[in-house]
Nucleic acid binder design. Structure first.
Lengths: 256, 256
DNA sequence: TCCCCTTATTGATCTAGATCAACGTCTGTT
DNA sequence: AACAGACGTTGATCTAGATCAATAAGGGGA
């Protein structure tokens, strides 16, 4: 996730059709002519350094951003000033769609590492998508995807024990990274333990402890941010069969 | 929420322009001519009885539904067969947008009471929205709204103590119902305690206890499903100043 | 290169809220 | 009207995971 500088230089000026994320990102399934029209609207942006903002909460909606490389965290701020991370974003994903409803961003997006994005002015995207049916459909799909992802996270947060949340998070990252051309069983987490804890609604210490347990049990190898999945099946069963050991009353209306 | 049968009969055959939910729902801001075109696509459906499904998880996406009266719960089912409610839907809201991404529903929608919906075939809606800019924008807005709502709930689930979750939930219902023309300080909750508990990630018993406490403290009057808000300010401060009594370390990275 | 500061790990203790249990109260059915 | 089964309340106990505390290990700036 950090060491793709080699490709970056050559990609920097490139267009959608030569982008490795083509089939994940907005232009998926577009015809050559349409692709070109989209291409003309997209402003390719220089890299955004770690800890810099793509947009901040409260700013007016100007553009939607497609991540080309790197990663971001998006978070809301609650009254006490504490942040709540609502998601991490990976290459090929769109950022900023929360802002369409009220014309201003309801969360901030901060780069977790040096990242590259394509900026797409929203009004132009909107009018273009009226003319290109596939583009419109793709936009709907991507927004719908975000709803799905959020709802899956809600499920984790509301019902699942810590073990399951973390296992599920790691599997999710593995799958998403894999779709983007990275190895599925070995990857770097660009976010800190604190960020993971915040997203999953747990304490940093719990994340640390669970990662150690997972390692002791031979599920993972953990070297700081580098994760190697050693026993995918066990990890999966932890993530789904919520609560490995202590579950007794299953069935009725509710778990835990 | 349950006793609007009087209006219902007259509304049943009516069109968007005479609908009381006009300014919340899809056709907001549409010109007369466009409204008519949308109107022609919408299938007005008979009422759906309590506990019946609008759609079930796994079904192919056919239509999007606009709620005209009544209310629904949407929930996902996890491997153990337990349900996780991801939201309640009120009149003027759209249901089914989760399904756009994969062309099939990722959650089920069940009526909490006898309800009426307008059914809008998705493919027709999609092509119509290409021709009517305002309609497209409205669709984007409503999807974005759902993302926002989900993210707000995630914040509650991840960080907030039980007290805050429930206070926030009640305020949210009050505001949403108020927008729909009901009283803000007095309303019926159409869902069971169990459903609220499930959504908020708590045990039924905790909901019960907190409602009793809120009543003892003069914040609410609770008569089974009927809620009267007596002290809005206190309720608000419970909902925002997360944790009234036990908060000591505020500031840093994380709460609780 | 070293130093400082942020991030991570591990252990000990504490508590919010789950679970268990028992009882009360609606609501719809015959 | 009387019953049954679902739903709601209240109290007692238990525990997953938070919080507190102390130590270790990176990693970026001089």
């Amino acid at each position: 996730m950090t060491d793709n500088q080699v490709i970056k230089l050559s990609e920097l000026k490139s267009h959608c059709q030569s982008c490795s994320l083509y089939d994940l990102c907005l232009p998926m399934g577009l015809k050559a002519g349409d692709l070109e029209r989209l291409d003309n609207v997209i402003k390719r942006r220089q890299s955004i350094n770690k800890n810099n903002f793509l947009f901040r909460i409260g700013e007016p909606l100007k553009s939607i951003y497609a991540i080309r490389s790197g990663s971001f965290k998006t978070y809301m701020t609650n009254p006490d000033g504490t942040e709540q991370i609502v998601g991490f974003s990976l290459p090929g994903e769109l950022l900023g769609m929360d802002a369409i409803s009220d014309d201003k961003h309801t969360c901030s997006a901060k780069a977790l590492e040096t990242s590259n994005v394509c900026e797409i002015p929203f009004d132009q995207l909107e009018s273009l998508s009226r003319e290109i049916p596939n583009l419109q459909h793709q936009l709907f799909r991507l927004m719908s995807k975000e709803i799905q992802q959020d709802q899956n996270l809600m499920l984790l947060l509301a019902q699942m024990p810590a073990e399951t949340r973390l296992a599920s998070f790691i599997l999710g990252m593995s799958e998403r990274l894999n779709k983007r051309g990275y190895a599925a069983n070995e990857f770097n987490l660009s976010m800190s333990r604190g960020d993971i804890a915040n997203l999953l609604g747990m304490a940093v210490e719990t994340i640390s402890r669970l990662l150690s347990h997972f390692q002791e049990d031979g599920l993972l190898r953990v070297e700081r941010k580098h994760i190697t999945i050693l026993d995918l099946d066990s990890l999966r069963s932890l993530a789904t069969h919520c609560s490995s050991s202590y579950s007794k009353s299953s069935g009725k209306t509710q778990v835990r």
